[in-house]
Simulated assay, not measured.
Amino acid sequence: MAITLSERAADHVARFIEKRGKGVGIRLGVKTSGCSGMAYKLEFADEAAPEDIIFECRGVKVLVDPKSLPYMDGTELDFVREGLNEGFKFKNPNVKDECGCGESFNV
Rank of each mutant, 00 (worst) to 15 (best):
M1W: 00
M1N: 00
T4C: 03
L5C: 13
E7F: 03
R8P: 06
R8E: 15
A10G: 11
A10W: 09
A10N: 10
H12W: 14
V13S: 00
A14P: 01
A14D: 11
R15V: 05
R15T: 07
R15N: 13
I17P: 01
E18P: 00
K19R: 12
G21C: 05
K22E: 12
K22R: 14
G23P: 02
I26E: 10
I26V: 15
R27S: 14
R27W: 05
G29V: 04
K31W: 12
K31Q: 10
T32A: 11
S33V: 04
C35P: 04
C35Y: 02
S36P: 08
S36M: 11
G37D: 02
G37P: 02
M38W: 06
A39W: 05
A39K: 07
E43Y: 07
E43Q: 14
F44E: 05
F44S: 01
F44Y: 15
A45S: 14
D46W: 08
D46T: 13
E47A: 14
E47R: 15
A48I: 02
A48E: 13
P50Q: 09
E51S: 13
D52K: 06
I53G: 06
I53H: 03
I54M: 12
I54N: 09
E56P: 07
E56L: 01
G59Y: 04
G59V: 04
V60S: 08
V60M: 04
V62L: 13
L63I: 00
V64W: 00
D65H: 04
D65Q: 10
P66K: 01
P66T: 07
P66F: 01
K67Q: 10
L69K: 02
L69E: 05
P70K: 12
Y71V: 12
Y71G: 01
M72Y: 02
D73G: 15
D73F: 00
G74D: 03
T75E: 00
T75C: 07
E76G: 03
E76N: 13
L77G: 12
D78G: 03
F79G: 06
V80P: 06
R81P: 00
E82F: 02
E82N: 06
E82A: 15
G83D: 02
N85T: 03
G87H: 11
G87M: 09
G87F: 13
G87E: 08
F88P: 04
K89N: 05
K89F: 14
F90T: 06
F90K: 05
P93H: 13
P93I: 00
N94F: 00
N94I: 03
V95K: 10
V95N: 07
K96F: 00
K96Y: 04
K96D: 06
D97V: 12
C99G: 15
G100P: 13
G100N: 13
C101H: 13
G102Q: 05
G102S: 11
E103K: 11
S104K: 12
S104E: 10
V107Q: 01
V107F: 13
